[in-house]
């Protein structure tokens, strides 16, 4: 089993990054063995569509679940289409804590976008 967490550092002890599309790193983890691999998030500096871009990466990892702080409407639609479960890390601080909470079934399952607007700096860019 594989899950993805959005983190600020490429590390299991890293703090979680609350922004899904614009997180710094994506930590791909087997929650049972804690084998992990970190990828810099290509969407972090996108001028727009970061959530979609990040969701495509997550989808390509063939993971069961993704844990983050916030899922915008585009990211939510994309992850839902990819049949990836979404969870919010809530009060967990580090990736390790969130993985344990996930295994304990204590994370909030996300059934709808958790915010409305994008974090993009300029939505009318072309």
């Amino acid at each position: 089993m594989k899950i993805v967490l959005t983190t600020t550092q490429p590390d299991l002890e890293s703090e979680l990054d609350p922004r899904f599309g614009r997180c710094s790193y994506l930590l791909v983890v087997d929650p049972y063995t804690l084998d992990w691999q970190a990828e810099p998030n290509a969407g972090a500096n996108a001028s727009g569509g970061a959530g979609v871009q990040t969701a495509q990466f997550v989808s390509a990892q063939k993971v069961q679940a993704v844990i983050s702080g916030d899922f915008g409407p585009n990211a939510f639609s994309a992850l839902e289409a990819a049949e990836v479960e979404m969870y919010q890390f809530g009060s967990c601080r580090t990736a390790r804590e969130a993985i344990q909470s996930f295994l304990d079934g204590n994370l909030q399952h996300v059934g709808a976008a958790t915010r409305s607007e994008g974090h993009s700096k300029g939505r009318s860019r072309l």
């Binding site: 979609v52 871009q53 969701a55 989808s59 994309a78 990819a82 049949e83």
Partner: peptide
């Protein structure tokens, strides 16, 4: 602009992007 995503067997279009 990431206005199209291919996710498994589904293709999503985001008209606002």
């Amino acid at each position: 602009y990431h206005a199209i995503a291919v996710l498994g067997r589904k293709v999503l279009i985001f008209p606002q992007l």
